Amino acid sequence: MEVSLDLCRYNAIPYMAVRNTVHVLPREMFGFSTFGIAMALIKWFPLWLVDKFLLLVANFILGNTDQVGLRRPKTGPIELKNVTGKTPVLDVGALSLIKSGEIKVMEGVKEITGNGAKFMDGQEREIDSIILATGYKSNVPTWLKGCDFFNKDGMPKTPFPNGWKAEKGLYTVGFTRRGLLGTASDAVKIARDIARQWRPNDSCSNSHVILLKET
């Protein structure tokens, strides 16, 4: 959505193909960060109740996003983030342009034509440029050999919150699929583990610490 927003601000006419469901939340609620509110509530309330609250407020502020082609998943936003790593989209202005028609939401691309694209609803448009927002995945197994700590998808086999330490001084940061909070949790545990092993008179010549961060 942010890419379409930037394009629209520079007088382009973006067509945004949305193939999957997505949670769109306001960037702020009641003057506070939406994620900040969510993380604070999780300390006191069950996850399902926090998700229900977030969706209730989001629908009040943003309206029903299904009506503009942005279908919400059945799973709540924070639960979905914990299970799949899929982060909710925070609206920074794109939704108002979608509602006004300046950003056009399409169901999906059926085929690429000689001068543009044909969409799933049968519409065909001339397109100057196509941006593939395909996401990313970990490529650790392609370059880290002789280590059984990661699965074939490049993620630690040991689930959160214990997937931060491997063997031979290898630490992993940011593979939790829990955003910055998960990364912070890993970083604190690694710092404490290194501190426990440190001895002022020990030689560090044979010590190696590798930090891997998923980007």
Rank of each mutant, 00 (worst) to 15 (best):
K157W: 03
T158R: 04
T158N: 03
P159C: 03
F160N: 09
P161Y: 00
P161D: 08
P161Q: 03
N162P: 01
G163T: 11
G163N: 06
G163F: 00
W164A: 00
W164F: 00
W164G: 07
W164E: 05
K165R: 10
K165C: 03
K165G: 00
K165F: 02
A166M: 05
K168C: 04
G169Q: 06
L170F: 03
T172H: 02
T172V: 06
T172E: 01
T176A: 04
R178H: 05
G179N: 11
G179Y: 00
G179W: 03
L180N: 07
L180S: 07
L181G: 10
L181T: 12
G182E: 09
G182I: 02
A184E: 13
S185M: 00
A187D: 10
V188R: 13
V188A: 07
V188T: 12
K189D: 10
I190K: 08
A191I: 05
A191M: 01
I194E: 00
I194D: 03
I194M: 02
A195I: 12
A195Y: 05
R196G: 05
R196H: 13
W198S: 14
W198H: 15
R199C: 07
P200R: 13
N201L: 06
N201Y: 09
D202F: 01
S203Y: 05
C204H: 07
C204K: 15
C204N: 15
N206D: 15
S207D: 12
S207E: 12
V209W: 04
